[in-house]
């Protein structure tokens, strides 16, 4: 539907749009991280597009698969033109920072906080960037692919219960078998 949006973006921003496709009707643009805010501003303000509704913000961790490591994704919807678009940027591991879109859509506030919480992607310009689901004492970012799968960080001392042997947690004598 919003092939129109892709066309307009490509005409307006040219090389700053790195990739675009509308596979299965999902219009997607990959933009340069530096131009993200302007692209979003354009999507919101253009009278033919009017993407006025923030749907979601999330990230994908391409650890050991591709570089740069994180892909940050915004989903937008236009309640006026009934179009959807997906905007992506890629940020590297050493400084995972990109612009926050909360100034444009206040509804992005908690979505971006969740992405920060789970992936450790920092949003510059966000009014209140702190953890939203995990507790402040939590160390690390649990949805990153290099977070250990069995690592837990209890806030209080747990009672000792008998461990039931499982595959992940074999009884000691099973470990010594050849």
């Amino acid at each position: 539907m919003s092939v129109l949006a892709l066309e307009k973006l490509k005409r307006r921003f040219g090389d700053d749009i790195l990739e675009s496709h509308s596979k299965l009707g999902d219009d997607t643009v990959l933009v340069k991280a530096e131009r993200l805010y302007e692209v979003a501003q354009f999507l919101k303000d253009d009278p033919e597009l009017q993407f006025d509704m923030p749907i979601d913000n999330t990230a994908v961790d391409w650890w050991q698969v591709s570089e740069p490591r994180f892909e940050v994704i915004w989903h937008l919807y236009s309640t006026v033109k009934h179009m959807r678009i997906r905007v992506k940027v890629r940020v590297g591991e050493d400084n995972p920072t990109c612009a926050s879109l909360t100034p444009l859509w206040p509804g992005m506030n908690w979505h971006e906080r969740e992405t920060w919480d789970m992936y450790g992607v920092r949003f510059s310009g966000h009014p209140n960037l702190k953890r939203v689901l995990m507790y402040e004492e939590f160390v690390g970012y649990p949805l990153r692919k290099d977070y250990p799968i069995t690592k837990r960080q209890p806030l209080i001392e747990e009672r000792i219960v008998r461990e039931v042997p499982t595959q992940r947690n074999p009884p000691p004598d099973m470990l010594n078998q050849p």
Binding site: P142, T150, K151, R152, Q153, I156, R159, V161, R168
Partner: peptide, 15 residues
Amino acid sequence: YDNYCTVQGADRIIP
């Protein structure tokens, strides 16, 4: 929920 955020049974907290 064998994951980073779930207590593996409430008996680890109270009897």
